[in-house]
Design a protein around this nucleic acid. Structure first.
Lengths: 275, 275
DNA sequence: CAGCTTATGCCAACGCCATTGACCTAAGAC
DNA sequence: GTCTTAGGTCAATGGCGTTGGCATAAGCTG
């Protein structure tokens, strides 16, 4: 098998599975999203997905090169849902705010999927559309060139970063989530005030706040800053520009000697990036 | 087994493994970090860790309740490294900035570990120290109560969110990372300007910027906003407060019928959080 | 030093997992 | 009706985390 891996979108022979289902890319992605919602991030396995589809797990490999390719397809689907039905109001601040919150919410509505995909750049069609939209909003606001790129960068990375962070906590199994919330009320609140005075006195307020997302607050702050720059172009940010990230310290073992070709969390972008 | 799970820090009998090694919490965490650096996030498995330690994989369960507890210990270790050697300058803005960048950098220095841990709240001792430190810096700056909690929330979540996001791209296998960078120069730059005009004209600038981290820029913006609030206390953020995150839509299957007690992404905080 | 307790390491096994090669069969082209 | 082959199924491989049972040596007590 796995000769062609993924035939074109228009499949030729719609054969039925033993249980009478007719598979398709779309059906598989939708079912995967449903399973993620029902069983959590660990609930998405080829075996269970096959079960839910009424098909043998190996049938999935006729549609996706592997679980990783499926995850990328899910990511683009989520991005598409974020933008669905949105229309510009003409007010760039409101547009940016709405878009940011929409993307954030779309990811949080499927936290288990978001955890897997928020930090991936799929280059898929829906992602490209969002990028173009954000850039055009900023452009209409009056930003150009370096400033345009800077604000876009800050906007999109903040949105994805918080989506990933917030989704991760939502994606925790309920028991762990409860333990987390309890920790703010017990562990932190119980710290002796001679060793941790600030935590001791602030713990109740933190307990009330830390389980919410800080993203809306951050988003507003970033938009305010952008607006302030428009009003007074001389106002450049305090620090220097972006800081280059250094590469990971050590080399990775090349795929030999017992390592699977590329395990579950995987190869990332195996299909390169065709728009 | 697994009666006591994790004996106290001072273990009683330092028995040697068959290969003559003497295990300890510290040795295990350090070895795990080394494995993460060498083999990537998927390279950290109980079996391989046992191999690297010269011990049976099951010996790990005398020290950690499971792989999940080990991951939390790694997170605390990273946090500790971020704070090591830091001293306050007395200038709250500079202190916050340095701390934020330090934590961010500490995580990025072990991207594979950061990916696994950035979104986890370990409640470990080093994390508590950082929390107390940040709160005390903000307190000395003049923030109290709700404002104190709000700025702390924004600060720490931004830091961790960007650490997770940036680490995720650094953690990509080199081939995928290269493909990512190439995409900004090729795919995005090659988009026709009639369908994606803004992307087309901004692509070169984006290519130069998107591979860096937006965190320093965001951090400075957040600190500036905090300072502005101090100067003019009436200035409340534009939007409302934090937005409550909704829980995952559907209930999870309780641990019956084939689900492992709690799979890899797991139980979280099994050791509660004693400082 | 002898003897006891038990902490801690090892072994073998369980039930998951993704993935693949070999096969079979029905869908669609002619 | 016949043929080709896409798209199913089956069975197997080698990984994984985790656990129960067992053996043994470390360190205490005398």
């Amino acid at each position: 098998m796995a000769k062609d891996v993924v035939a074109g979108a228009a499949r030729q022979r719609r054969r039925r599975t033993r249980q009478g289902e007719v598979l398709s890319h779309e059906l598989i992605v939708r079912t995967a999203l449903r399973m993620l919602a029902e069983h959590g991030a660990q609930g998405l396995t080829a075996r269970r997905l096959g079960l839910a589809l009424g098909a043998d797990p190996s049938a999935l490999y006729r549609y996706f090169a592997g679980m990783d390719a499926l995850v990328l397809a899910i990511a683009d689907e989520l991005t598409g849902r974020a933008l669905a039905g949105w229309t510009s109001t003409g007010d760039w601040r409101q547009d940016l705010r709405t878009l940011g919150l929409r993307i954030h919410r779309a990811y949080l509505s499927h936290p288990q999927a978001a955890v897997l995909t928020a930090s991936r750049v799929s280059g898929g069609p829906h992602v490209l559309t969002v990028d173009e939209t954000v850039l055009s909003i900023l452009h209409r606001a009056g930003f150009r060139d370096r400033d345009l790129a800077r604000h876009y960068h800050v906007f999109i990375d903040s949105c994805l970063a918080f989506a990933a962070l917030d989704a991760a906590s939502l994606a925790l199994p309920p028991a762990a989530l409860a333990a987390d919330e309890r920790m703010w009320r017990t562990t932190y609140a119980a710290l002796p005030s001679d060793t941790h005075p600030r935590i001791a006195e602030t713990a109740p307020l933190l307990a009330a706040r830390m389980t919410d997302s800080a993203y809306p607050d951050v988003l507003d702050t970033l938009i305010d800053r952008a607006a302030a720059e428009l009003a007074a172009p001389a106002t450049v940010p305090t620090g220097a520009g972006p800081v280059p990230m250094e590469k990971a310290p050590a080399g990775r073992r090349t795929r030999r000697g017992g390592l699977r070709p590329e395990p579950p969390g995987g190869p990332a972008h195996p299909e390169g990036g065709s728009a």
